[in-house]
């Protein structure tokens, strides 16, 4: 006695076509992004031959308004300190002035197109929507294999997808300001009353910091 022949598992023609299309598109995008990522111009870098100097007041205000949505209140430095951070960067590091100018200009253009007003004039929620429309949001890797793969793909696709101005906004303005603002906020981030370079309570080091 022989075993009954198992029913044949078929795939509909429609499903096959859809799968092929999706797979092909995926391969095309992956291929494009892979090739594109290999090109130097997708990793923006500061033009270190550009002059240093100060931002004009309106662009400075645009970046201050950007800073307000990048960092929440509890870690945000005072506006005067933020202004000082930006000035130090543009005046001392070649290429930063140009990158900040371009980034502020892009935000204002996007804001004008969408809301008919300058970025710095918008309420915080509207500014956040403008930025979310310009740049993709994705978390950092967490150690979860699937999530992290998705994150990496998003990061690569965003670079391949965006034009140079958006890539420079992401890398040379948003990431740069985030880093500078949080570095200025390290004491509150790690719960210390003072950092190296600033005098503190000479006996505080013998106890846990008061967080």
């Amino acid at each position: 006695m022989s075993d009954p022949t198992p029913p044949r598992r078929g795939i509909s023609r429609r499903a096959f076509v859809a799968a092929t299309a999706v797979g092909g598109a995926g391969l095309a995008v992956a291929g494009y992004s892979g090739v594109a990522l290999a090109r130097d111009d997708l990793q923006p870098e500061l033009d270190t031959s550009a002059p240093t100097g100060s931002l004009d007041p309106s662009r400075m205000d645009t970046l201050l308004a950007l800073g307000e949505i990048l960092v929440p209140d509890r870690f945000r430095v005072a506006p005067t300190r933020m202004r000082q951070l930006i000035n130090e960067a543009t005046q001392q590091e070649p290429g930063v002035l140009e990158a900040y100018r371009e980034g502020a200009g892009l935000l204002d253009r996007l804001s004008q197109t969408r809301s008919g007003t300058a970025f710095r004039e918008l309420p915080a929620e509207a500014r956040d929507r403008i930025l979310s429309g310009a740049l993709w949001r994705y978390p950092a890797e967490t150690g979860d294999a699937f999530d992290d793969t998705v994150t990496k793909v998003k990061r690569r696709l965003e670079r391949a997808w965006h034009d140079g101005a958006h890539r420079r906004l992401r890398e040379l303005v948003v990431r740069d300001l985030l880093r500078r603002m949080y570095e200025a906020a390290v004491p509150s981030l790690i719960g210390y009353s003072n950092l190296p370079g600033v005098p503190g309570d000479p006996r505080a080091y013998v106890d846990r910091p008061r967080t």
Binding site: I69, L70, P72, R74, L131, R137, V174, R179
Partner: peptide, 12 residues
Amino acid sequence: TLRSGNWGEAFA
């Protein structure tokens, strides 16, 4: 800042 594509409260 290099790994994340977030900002605001999510990044914090």
